[in-house]
Design a protein around this nucleic acid. Structure first.
Lengths: 107, 107
DNA sequence: ATCATGGTTCGAATATAGTTGAACCTTCCC
DNA sequence: GGGAAGGTTCAACTATATTCGAACCATGAT
C-alpha cells in the first residue's frame, strides 16, 4: 500500500489570497510558519513555546494553515511531518511569503 | 483652526504584521485597497460595485483598514479622502503590499 | 493482539468579527 | 441659521472563529 491516511491539500493553482492572508493573520499560526521556515518539523516538536496547548487546538491551527495551502501535513511514522509549501505559495503569489517571513517578528 | 475632526492613524513604526494581514484577508477590504492602488479616492466614489451597502458597513470596513495602518482617511470638504499608506507599509514590511497587489485577483 | 504515542474529529461553549438602523456630527450652500 | 450630503459612532443582533475535552484512528513496539 502506498497511500496513507492523508489529509486533503489544495492544489497550488487553487490557493486563494484572502485565505492565505487570513491563515497568516494569527500570531500563533504565523509563528508556526516561521518555525517551518527553517525546515520541515515533526508536529510533536512544534509549538514547544506553549507546552500547555491542548493537542486539539494545535491540530486546528495546522488545519487552517493546511487548508489555506500554506503548509503540508504528511504522515510520518506515528506522527506527522509539517513543512512549508514554499514553492507553491511562491508560484501563485510571488514574493508574498518572503516579505512576510522577513517582516519584523514582534509588534 | 487647523486641526479638523481627524480619526486616529497608527504611526508607521507601530504597524503590526498580523493586523495588516487580517485587514487584507477580507475580500471586500482587499478590493478597496486594490481600488486605492490607482490613487486616492473620495469615499463616496468607493465601493460602487455594491451600491446597496449601508454607509455604516462601509465606514466599518474603512475603520479596520485604517486602524491596521493600511489606509489613510482624511477630511476633505463634506466627505473623506481615502488613500493607501503605501510608503508606510512598504517601510515597515518591504515588498508585502506589492506582492499582494500583484497577486491574482480572483479565486 | 495489545498497548502507548501522536493526531484528527466532533461537539459544545466562548469569543471575536461583521452587519445594520438610528442618532449624531461636520461641512458646504443658500 | 437651516437644510442636505457624507460619514462616524453606538448598540443590538447575527455569523464566524477559537478553544478544548472526549472519543476515535493509525502507527510502531512489545
Amino acid at each position: 500500500m502506498i497511500e496513507t491516511s492523508d489529509l486533503p491539500h489544495p492544489a497550488r493553482e487553487d490557493l486563494v489570497l484572502t485565505q492565505v492572508l487570513f491563515a497568516l493573520s494569527d500570531p500563533a499560526r504565523l509563528e508556526i510558519v516561521r518555525q517551518l521556515d527553517a525546515g520541515p518539523l515533526e508536529m510533536a516538536q512544534c509549538c514547544l513555546q506553549d507546552p500547555t496547548m491542548p493537542k486539539s487546538t494545535k491540530s486546528h491551527l495546522m488545519k487552517v494553515l493546511r487548508e489555506a495551502g500554506v503548509i503540508r501535513n504528511e504522515v510520518k511514522g506515528r506522527g506527522r511531518l509539517l513543512s512549508l509549501r514554499r514553492e507553491d505559495v511562491e508560484s501563485r503569489f510571488p514574493g508574498l511569503l518572503e516579505s512576510i517571513l522577513k517582516a519584523p517578528v514582534g509588534r
